[in-house]
């Protein structure tokens, strides 16, 4: 097991664990945006820069995907590392000035504002970290959204920038979005759920008892396909909203003899 010396703290990690893993074990905070433990680290946001000791010089590396293969010395709080991270944050703020999540993180890093002007009209407030794209393809298995274009005009979009046929309205993309740009909007009047800004809409499944919207019908179907115990009772339960599900379970429990005697 190699040892990582990070800001003077020594931690032992498994071979090929990342510097970020080591930092978390040492309880040293390194800001991250595009990192998520469930998907492959692409290190695209470049916010988690730290310095690696190379003897006579220090190399800036991304903590989230640098694999520890031998004993290394890393500086997360050095002037060089902090300056690099603040620089990246300022560039991100210029792109996504309205994100509260981003502003909060910037503040925690000691960045109050950005010196840079807005230089692109493309997909305001999206930092193009790609978490949504990865989660949609690799965890949900839908690949409804992807990148479109390149460079500063790159955007996250569904094919042909039309509402995607593959979107099931699960909202996983919104859940992982670190800057709060992707939103789930429920249109009660139409019984539809919309994933913004992709304009994809899915029909909502309504609770069979109280008619409250539960999840999109496709998500419910997918859940049924995935789960092996597929009894009639389960099929029924999944068509209920959480409240009605609770009520029904409570009723069933109450009807059980043990409770009668209890």
């Amino acid at each position: 097991m190699p040892t990582v010396t990070i800001d003077g703290h020594k931690v032992r990690v498994k071979k090929n664990a990342t510097v970020l893993d080591a930092a978390r074990r040492a309880e040293i905070w390194i800001p991250t945006l595009c990192y998520h433990p469930s998907v492959l680290s692409e290190a695209s946001c470049r916010l988690c820069m730290v310095e690696l000791d190379r003897g006579d010089w220090r190399q800036l590396i991304t903590a989230c995907n640098y694999p520890v293969r031998r004993d290394i010395v890393v500086y997360a709080s050095s002037e060089g590392a902090e300056q690099a991270r603040r620089g990246v944050m300022e560039l991100l703020l210029a792109r996504a000035p309205e994100s509260e999540e981003l502003r909060a993180m910037a503040e925690r890093m000691g960045v109050e504002k950005t010196r840079y002007p807005k230089v692109t009209e493309s997909q305001r407030n999206c930092i193009l970290c790609g978490l949504c794209v990865q989660v949609c393809e690799h965890l949900i298995g839908q690949a409804a959204i992807g990148f479109a274009g390149r460079g500063v005009d790159k955007a996250v979009a569904a094919p042909f920038r039309q509402p995607s046929e593959d979107c099931i309205g699960c909202g996983a993309c919104a859940a992982v979005c670190p800057v709060g740009t992707i939103k789930v909007r429920v249109h009660k009047d139409q019984n539809e759920v919309e994933i913004s800004p992709f304009k994809s809409r899915s029909k909502l499944m309504l609770c069979h008892e109280c008619s409250a919207p539960v999840v999109s019908t496709e998500v419910a179907e997918k859940a049924l396909q995935k789960i092996e115990i597929n009894t009639e009772e389960f099929r029924e339960l999944i068509r209920l909203c959480p409240r009605c599900r609770m009520l029904r379970t409570a009723k069933q429990l109450a009807a059980m003899p043990a409770y009668e005697n209890g």
Partner: peptide, 12 residues
Amino acid sequence: VPLSRVYAIATF
């Protein structure tokens, strides 16, 4: 291959 990837290539 997902259509989103084909579209990504077509625009990249």
